[in-house]
Computed example of a mutant assay.
Amino acid sequence: MTTWLSEVFDVPKPVIGMCHLPALPGDPGYDAAGGMDKVLAHARQEVAALQDGGIDGILISNEFSLPYLTTTEPITAVAMARVIGEIRSELRVPFGVNVLWDGVASIDLAVSTGASFVREVFTGVYASDFGLWNTDVGKAARHRARMGATGVRLLYNIVPEAAAYLAERSLAQLTRSTVFNGTPDGLCVSGLTAGAATDTSTLAVVKENAGAVPVFVNTGVRPDTVAESLEYADAAIVGTSLKRDGVFENEVDRARVAELMAVVRGLRA
């Protein structure tokens, strides 16, 4: 168990549930008729279902801002800050934020809302569904320092969804160099898309080469896979499998959260 994970979550192998926000102002799918009141009502319902189901932490993201930008418009983080500000008193577990796919905006949102961690793609250059995807981890790290936010933990997507790393290096080499050059607080290992299974052999390679940096299984965790995933990973981030019928577009189902967390508590015991 790594120190910061213990400090933030106070349980071994914490499980973080996703609060997927609907499309926000400026997004193609935004429901202007329902407006921000509809977004707020959705967020409140998701948070309640996750917490009542026994989740260890929550990660709030603009998951339905499809198609994503790699440098977001200001309105996205502003809208997310309003949502979190209005539901902040209802959050009983540690929470993080993710402004897809913009690391600096995610850090700003974390600072403004008191989030404990951020998940983003901070390193590498990729050919992706969103075009050529470049990053600047040095800029992001310095931005965090300027904001006085060194306590905001940065989780790096080491195998991003919907993208392929352009350099011809093995996953083991990539992990070691990311840890050395990027100084991440955590590494997230994903499948191809949200909800897609994360290969345990990939998890094993990242864990073997990550040193003391905690590894998060980032997609595809279900009651029948969580034991195998947490054999290698130090924590899990779960979204799709917690939703009604396990469908990405549906709302969080409290019963599915409780089912997963019952398995996790059994593993801890």
Rank of each mutant, 00 (worst) to 15 (best):
L91W: 06
M80Y: 08
R82Y: 12
V47S: 01
E46F: 11
A77P: 03
G85L: 06
G54W: 03
I60S: 02
P74N: 09
M80G: 08
R82C: 10
G57P: 11
I87Q: 06
V83N: 01
E73W: 05
G54H: 08
Q45W: 09
A49G: 03
F64R: 04
I55Y: 11
F64I: 00
P74C: 10
E86F: 01
L66C: 07
Q45E: 14
Q45L: 07
V83E: 00
S65A: 14
I58M: 12
A79G: 05
L50D: 09
L59G: 00
I75F: 05
E90T: 11
Q45F: 09
E63P: 03
R82M: 13
Q45V: 05
L66R: 13
I58Q: 10
L66K: 15
E90W: 02
D56K: 09
V83W: 00
V78D: 06
A79C: 07
A43V: 07
T70N: 13
E73I: 14
Q51I: 06
T76Q: 00
M80P: 04
E73H: 14
E86K: 10
S61V: 07
P74R: 09
L69H: 04
I75H: 06
L69R: 13
G57H: 11
V83R: 00
N62I: 11
E63L: 15
M80Q: 04
P74W: 04
D56A: 11
G53F: 10
I87A: 04
I75R: 10
A79I: 05
L50E: 05
V47T: 10
T76N: 01
T71N: 12
M80H: 05
G53M: 13
G57D: 04
A43T: 02
A81V: 02
R44F: 08
R88C: 10
G54E: 04
G53C: 11
I87K: 06
E90L: 12
R88A: 14
P74I: 08
R44A: 15
D52N: 15
P67F: 03
A81N: 11
S89E: 13
F64V: 00
L91T: 11
G85Q: 05
I60E: 03
A43E: 02
E46C: 14
E86H: 06
Q51T: 07
E90I: 03
V47C: 09
Q51V: 06
V83Q: 02
A79P: 03
D56Y: 09
I84S: 00
A48Q: 14
R82E: 13
D52K: 15
D52T: 12
L50W: 08
I75Q: 08
G57F: 08
E86I: 03
G54F: 02
E73C: 13
E46V: 08
A48K: 14
L59H: 00
E90Q: 13
Q45P: 01
L50I: 05
N62S: 10
S89I: 01
T76F: 01
I55A: 07
R44W: 10
L59C: 04
D52C: 12
G57C: 07
E73Y: 13
R82L: 13
A43K: 00
T71R: 15
A79W: 03
A49M: 02
Q45H: 13
Y68R: 03
A43N: 02
T72N: 14
E90H: 08
